[in-house]
Design a protein around this nucleic acid. Sequence first.
DNA 1: TCAAAAGTGTTCGGGCTACACCCATGC
DNA 2: GCATGGGTGTAGCCCGAACACTTTTGA
Lengths: 231, 231
Amino acid sequence: MDGPLSTRVTSQSAAATHTVDCVVFGFAEGELRVLLVRRAVAPFAGEWVLPGGAMAADQTLEETGQRVLRELVGVSNLQLTQVATYSAPDRHPVRRVVTTTYYALVRPEHHTPAARGYLSEAAWHRLTELPPLGFDHRELLDDAHLRLIQHLRTRPLAFALLPDDFTLSEIQQLYEEILGESLDRRNFRRKVLAYDFLIDTGVKRSGVKGGPAVYRSDPALLHRALTAPHI
Amino acid sequence: MDGPLSTRVTSQSAAATHTVDCVVFGFAEGELRVLLVRRAVAPFAGEWVLPGGAMAADQTLEETGQRVLRELVGVSNLQLTQVATYSAPDRHPVRRVVTTTYYALVRPEHHTPAARGYLSEAAWHRLTELPPLGFDHRELLDDAHLRLIQHLRTRPLAFALLPDDFTLSEIQQLYEEILGESLDRRNFRRKVLAYDFLIDTGVKRSGVKGGPAVYRSDPALLHRALTAPHI
DNA sequence: TCAAAAGTGTTCGGGCTACACCCATGC
DNA sequence: GCATGGGTGTAGCCCGAACACTTTTGA
């Protein structure tokens, strides 16, 4: 809100830049990963950070997140979920920066990140082996991960991270990765099948022992499960 | 985050003012209420809105929320919980405003709001009988209420809204108000007593039928319950 | 004495957890 | 053929929901 204070207030707050940082989660080779970029310029030149950028005058924060991911690392059309906004005056060493974070879930095989702009590198990192991050991005990342866990406990979100076809064990691995705990196979199967948006393709995956059944999620039913049943 | 784009980027985003709006919940006469203020100036002069104001250059968003509530409506030292950040370019009719919302829980009897600054009025409103709100504040308020409900389902937050002494029925009324549903008295008593931070003062409330026992919450145990057991 | 609210225990069902054996496949 | 993982069912426990009667107090 604001009132007649406009001028005083605008001059005060003009010093702050509003940026968006994105915590992009991917799942590959059985491990949960995060998309990080390496800065080519000061401050924190050479350090790994979350991909992000400043809000444009004609864009919302979410649109800014989409644009930044497209421009900097070449990934498009992600579903971004807002996490939090950070405003400590000294969180950026040079000037005042207020940052809103979003998380996104992607299939890494669909998106090959490539560093552009002021970046020297863009790569997936295992959540268990993160490099030191510049700014306060480690905190931002951890907060986003916690929020993801919260959301995952109430909704079948994780399918956005999986390829079209997957086995039940692959889903389970994914859940175990995100939640950071191991789950009982039988109980997990029962629960996930109860969602009833999984389709048994009838195919069995070859090249892997046991010959597990290959499933696919029904997009319409999955969407219904994601939107309808609030908790 | 941002890099060599600084100048371009800063000029773009300098147009946006960052403000904080607060959704202050109170509980009085058995009903959940929200603190609203009436604007004395354009835009939306004469309309009810959430109390809020622009972020100061040397303050965090949360500190701004505290200051705004102190300056505009004379309430201090609330615990503010961040809800979300809104950034639609046209959400303010005059210029670009990005707003972060917080909610707070207070005991109305401890805080007598008084309009100051650019406000003509400050008053508690029943959540069930809200006036039309200026800007997009109705959406902000509803989102904050939903977040409060979510938090309340996992933590015994509501005691911040109650006087020092209260009966079990009063707590139950409060929960029913916030959640918008009625609860079984016996189940509710059992659950709330299981938290084990309630102290039976031994006193019985007079002037009310049934002679209900008066309870008090142990500050230390309550604080532990609020912070320790994450879900 | 009557009306209204306080106080109290038990039962039922559903969901989660724990757990062991046989089958299919790759090597 | 053997090692690895896939596939299946059941029993116990805990939590939450439903539910009725007696006691206390104000009017």
